[in-house]
Design a protein around this nucleic acid. Structure first.
Lengths: 239, 239
DNA sequence: ACGCCGTGTAACGGTGTGTAACAGGAGCGC
DNA sequence: GCGCTCCTGTTACACACCGTTACACGGCGT
């Protein structure tokens, strides 16, 4: 029935989908206007770092990454987990350098879209401009949705919301929404949810006691999606 | 020395600045490509509401507004306070309807930029496209910076960061950075910082005891900016 | 085998929240 | 102007959620 999310490596082919993701189509069109390269990033390596020259946007082809916001006094905050189809680097548009870090959590493949050539391409392909603007706006909405979750839900409900969001995104990519392996550790989940890792661990254990989920290290099975959804708080109004 | 931030009303002229804000120049240019109207919004009225058709971006000419994210189960989260020069509505680009609320906290004046005509104008004015993209990216950075603050700082430091941010933005508009009137209540500040309003009140009182600030209802004086800055945590690395 | 790191759990305590009470100011009607 | 109502803000006290501290265990790399 449910197929487990197997660890993806460089050797694994991109998962088959009913159709190519929309931005995937654009790669071919973009290649007619500029040099688009595909990059491999090993687990633990940075795709880009805060302070590095900003010269491209990055479209995830395969793999899993996290983005982090950093403060001058050493604080760090995970701001998102990125997977196939996600566009990275947009937050630095308009600046000379990147303003955050992007790290691969597993071996990944990334399309590198040079900037400003992407912007120039927008002039020639109005559809691309619409797409880019929409992608930026979607990024804003996603962040806002998490701000709502973090600002208004207690710890366990945040964790539930996190699992459901991850499950939904994996399902969109053709993976199982009920059985998957977390590609990030408890500390990263915690940072993302403005919690401490012990709290994440406790929340997972309690959700398991409730039999909403089964969890063993990084393997997660969602056992009762309805109950978990009720626990997670309802999503943003209209979407 | 310090001039107090006087309550702005419809009758008050926009404050004088050394130069017009960059986006202000674009209004004149935009008007050559589309109908740009100036709208008045009374305190307490909505500029737009979640679920309403999305047909424009909004540039604040004068006044003060808040944006709110809403959930289906009634939770609400203030996501920002907007003043002159701020662009609103960008989070809904790509959708048919607005995804959040924008409410005027005082009588305000707003430039209404019809969308998609703005997008079409970008094709004719590449500089505008650069500006719009940069504005969207700046919105993302701003939200991320607050996520870092909320995710890594305790309550009192969040409040300090909030005051400093507000002071800096007011200063940029030509107002005093040391003596101003808050246009929002404690509850809104609290929502924005993922706190409760009592906690905000307590933090303000304590900062006053420390003689970092003086606060009386909505009137705030920053007495020791250095101490307050040290309290607020250092900002995002490189900006 | 050893060391390091991530995960998981428990105990304790502190920070922030919830509740209640109160004060003061604004707005409205007479 | 006065009185009343409502809203906003402050403060005290109680409590619980989550952070802190500590430790054990398992997996992985050398």
């Amino acid at each position: 029935m449910d197929t487990a999310f197997v660890p993806s490596t460089i050797e694994m082919p991109a998962p088959p989908t009913a159709g190519e993701p929309p931005l995937e189509l654009d790669i071919e069109e973009l290649q007619r206007h500029m040099v688009v390269t595909r990059r491999k990033v090993r687990a633990g390596q940075y795709l880009y770092r805060n302070g590095q020259p900003f010269h491209a946007l990055y479209l995830v082809h395969a793999g899993f990454l996290k983005t982090c916001e950093l403060s001058q006094d050493g604080r760090e905050q995970v701001t998102g987990f990125r997977m196939r189809g996600d566009l990275l680097g947009v937050e630095s548009i308009g600046l000379a350098v990147h303003t955050c870090d992007a790290v691969a959590l597993e071996d990944s493949q990334i399309w590198e879209l040079p900037y400003p050539p992407v912007l120039t391409a927008c002039l020639h392909i109005p559809e691309l401009q619409v797409r880019l603007s929409a992608a930026l706006a979607e990024e804003i909405r996603r962040d806002r949705s998490w701000m709502l979750t973090i600002g208004t839900l207690p710890a366990e409900q945040r964790v539930a919301a996190f699992l459901l969001d991850l499950a939904a995104r994996l399902a969109r990519l053709g993976f199982s929404a009920r059985h998957f392996i977390l590609r990030m550790g408890r500390a990263d989940i915690a940072s993302f949810l403005a919690l401490k890792h012990e709290t994440v661990s406790r929340a997972l254990s309690h959700l398991e006691q409730l039999e909403y989920i089964s969890v063993l290290r990084r393997e997660v099975k969602l056992l009762d999606i309805a109950k978990l959804s009720a626990c997670a708080g309802m999503p943003r109004m209209i979407q």
